[in-house]
C-alpha cells in the first residue's frame, strides 16, 4: 500500500475515533460539584506525529491545517483545533532533529513510529508535542489566564489521558514486528 493511501486512511480513522468515540467520553476523575474539570482526550494530533520523515514542512503545515479544520467542523470550535495543530506541525521537524542522533534525510521511507525510533524517544517526542498542543488549545478555548490553576490542571490531566490513548492506539493499530517474526 502506498504511503499516501496509508496516510489518508489513517487520517479518516483518527478523525472517526476522535469524533465517534473519544468525544463522547467525558472524563472526570473525582467527585461531583466542586473540583475537577471535565475534559476530553484528544488523539488526532497522532496523525501529524506519524507522518513520514521526509514530508516537507509546507505539506506538514497544510495537512495539519486540514486536520484541525476537520475537527473544528465537528466540534463547533472554528479555528481553535486548527491553530494548535498547525503549531505542532511546524515544530515537529525541529523536535525530531533535536531528538534523533542521525539527520532526518538518513531515514528513507520511514515514519517516526515506535518501530523506527524506539519507545523512549517516541514517548518524549509525542508527549512534548501533545502537551504543547493541549496547552495552546485550552488557552485559546478559555481565553483568559485569570483561572490559571484550573487551566493548568485541565492541560495536564488531558495530556496524560491523551497520551494513554495514543499508546493504546499504537498498540492496537500498528503491526508489531516482534510478533510477526
Amino acid at each position: 500500500m502506498s504511503d499516501l493511501l496509508k496516510n489518508f486512511f489513517r487520517f479518516c480513522i483518527v478523525i472517526l475515533i476522535q469524533v465517534l468515540i473519544l468525544n463522547k467520553i467525558t472524563l472526570r476523575w473525582w467527585s461531583q460539584p466542586t473540583g475537577f474539570p471535565v475534559f476530553i482526550p484528544y488523539i488526532y494530533p497522532l496523525f501529524i506525529l506519524l507522518l513520514p520523515f521526509e514530508t516537507p514542512v509546507w505539506a506538514l503545515l497544510l495537512t495539519g491545517f486540514a486536520l484541525g479544520l476537520t475537527m473544528d467542523v465537528f466540534m463547533n470550535t472554528a479555528g481553535m483545533h486548527a491553530c494548535a495543530t498547525v503549531l505542532i506541525a511546524y515544530l515537529r521537524t525541529n523536535v525530531l532533529n533535536a531528538l534523533l542522533p542521525k539527520n532526518l534525510s538518513e531515514y528513507p521511507n520511514q515514519s517516526p513510529g515506535v518501530k523506527n525510533i524506539g519507545w523512549m524517544p517516541f514517548l518524549v517526542y509525542s508527549s512534548f508535542l501533545i502537551v504543547l498542543h493541549h496547552a495552546v488549545f485550552f488557552s485559546i478555548e478559555l481565553w483568559s489566564f485569570s483561572n490559571f490553576g484550573y487551566l493548568l490542571l485541565k492541560i495536564l490531566a488531558s495530556s496524560i489521558t491523551s497520551l494513554l490513548f495514543v499508546i493504546a492506539y499504537l498498540l492496537l493499530f500498528t503491526r508489531q514486528t516482534a510478533l510477526r517474526s
Binding site: 514542512v57 509546507w58 503545515l61 497544510l62 495539519g64 491545517f65 484541525g68 479544520l69 473544528d72 467542523v73 465537528f74 466540534m75 463547533n76 470550535t77 472554528a78 479555528g79 481553535m80 486548527a82 491553530c83 498547525v86 503549531l87 511546524y90 485559546i140
Partner: peptide, 29 residues
C-alpha cells in the same frame, strides 16, 4: 506559510466569537 495559516485560524476564531453564525464551520452542515 505557518504565520499565514495561524492568521487564518485566528480570523476564524474571532469571527465565530462574535456570534455571526458561522454556518460552514458548524456541526449543522
Amino acid at each position: 506559510l505557518f504565520l499565514a495559516l495561524e492568521i487564518v485560524c485566528f480570523v476564524l476564531i474571532a469571527r465565530t466569537n462574535m456570534l455571526q453564525g458561522n454556518d460552514v464551520l458548524s456541526s449543522a452542515n
